[in-house]
Design a protein around this nucleic acid. Structure first.
Length: 420
DNA sequence: TCTGGGGTCCTAGGACCC
DNA sequence: TCTGGGGTCCTAGGACCC
């Protein structure tokens, strides 16, 4: 049986989340900012129509914000995460196979289902009724075509938010009017290169010879070409597939210059990363620490460095990870810079069930360590910062700017909206 | 004054081996 | 005069995604 994929994507997701408990903002233009209130990472439709670009640094668009009376929100990931899981839960009733692709979109396997457009409309109306977030649905024989269908569903109002692209004629019709840069997997660099070769639309890309594409570009683009022609190369990746890397990093609200400050921040990130790792039920072998000044900071010299180390035994024990992280940090720390960002990466994962045990280690010790970590996680499960390790600095006095953050409406009792 | 964070995959080139 | 060839593994960096 030929596969059928749907891509369900929330419209202006973060902005829609902010509106969910503020019905008074239905027609107000709003933007949501990145961590530290740095860049614009989400815009409501009105703001998109005004031409405010995604990713613009806030200070560069201050004028437009003021002129058009755009309401500004700091990001509230607690809220977005909770709304996201409600959307995903709702989607599960429409397909036995759901791949949560990002916080605001999911692929569904709709193979064998008829009357697809109607089905798509049913998905839309159900999500808006159950969660209150508007979504668009794109349907196609490959993931890339489902993505393309979703693009059309968002762009053309006449589609009422659902496009079924299983028909080859419709595929061609749409691809002829779609700029090549809108194709999933074609980014800025590739767009430039393709356009310089005269490949300006999705249709022209689809008509290229896959073998030549592989030679002049890459196997990735070759796959894209095949997918545009209805040949499914990318499978549905179901929930449960493990991550290969965990990163925890932040820019600081204020530059840090002192060794102990930065070390505490690195430990804080390390502890958070280790907790995430335990949540995944994995062990890590590799730990990388990086620190850097701001590339935009012209007031002094720039410095960026990273160091990677390996644990003797794969572990998810915060203490072992922090011990190595501090060693890595010490090896790259340099006095005299104004640091803007730091982070930690964990990698080379393995399952706790197939670790090679240390011949000389006392196994009762490792069991006790596991219990300790489980206890710490349980104590910290409702938000961070109840229990922490020496070296961490959980009080956040390295300060992240968050001037306009909305309440945690759905995850904190004290923030529950009240109906009068 | 002020420029996000977290992922994946592929490739080229060097080291090393026989 | 004349200096192999082929394979694997690892890493850094680039491109992409949201």
């Amino acid at each position: 049986m030929k596969p059928t994929f749907a891509l369900v994507d929330c419209n202006n997701f973060y902005a829609s989340c902010e509106r969910l408990f503020r019905p008074d903002l239905t027609d107000t233009p709003i933007v949501v900012l990145s961590n530290n209130d740095g860049c614009i990472i989400a815009r409501s439709q009105e703001v998109k129509d005004l031409g405010v670009k995604m990713g613009s640094p806030l200070f560069k668009v201050k004028g437009e914000i003021k002129r058009h009376v755009i309401l500004v929100f700091s990001s509230n990931y607690t809220l977005y995460g909770d709304i996201s899981s409600r959307v995903m839960q709702t989607l599960e009733q429409f397909s036995p196979y759901v791949e949560v692709y990002s916080i605001d979109e999911a692929f569904l396997d709709l193979s064998g289902i008829g009357a697809l457009e109607e089905y798509g409309q049913k998905i839309r109306s159900t999500v808006i009724r159950h969660v209150g977030v508007p979504v668009c649905v794109g349907i196609g024989p490959t993931k890339t075509l489902a993505k393309l269908a979703n693009y059309a569903a968002k762009k053309f109002k006449g589609t009422r938010g659902v496009v079924d692209l299983t028909d080859a004629q419709r595929q061609m019709k749409l691809m002829k009017i779609t700029p090549v840069g809108e194709v999933w997997g074609v980014g800025r660099k590739l767009t430039q290169k393709l356009e310089s070769q005269g490949i300006t639309t999705a249709f022209k890309l689809a008509k290229m010879n896959p073998h030549q594409v592989r030679q002049s570009y890459s196997v990735v683009l070759e796959r894209t070409v095949c997918e545009l022609n209805g040949e499914s190369c990318l499978e549905l990746d179901e929930v449960g597939s493990k991550r290969q890397q965990i990163v925890c990093s932040r820019s600081f609200g204020e530059k840090l210059t002192c060794y102990s400050d930065l070390k505490e921040v690195v430990c804080e990130f390390g502890a958070r990363a280790a907790a995430k790792l335990r949540g995944e039920e994995q062990l890590a072998r590799m730990v990388t620490v990086f620190i850097r000044t701001s590339p935009f900071d012209k007031s002094g010299p720039n410095y960026a460095n990273a160091a990677t180390g390996s644990l003797v035994q794969p572990s998810s024990d915060t203490r072992q990870i922090l011990e190595l992280a501090v060693r890595m940090f010490d090896s790259i720390w340099c006095e005299g810079y104004r640091y803007a960002k730091a982070g930690i990466m964990l990698g080379e994962f393995c399952s706790p069930y197939d670790v090679q045990l240390d011949l000389f280690a006392d196994q009762t010790d490792s069991q006790r360590n596991d219990s300790l970590m489980t206890a710490v996680d349980a104590l910290n499960c409702k938000g961070q910062g109840k229990v922490w390790f020496g070296g961490q600095r959980p009080k956040k006095d390295w300060y992240i700017r968050q001037a306009n953050v909305s309440p945690a409406y759905t995850t904190r009792w004290s923030c529950l909206p009240v109906v009068k």
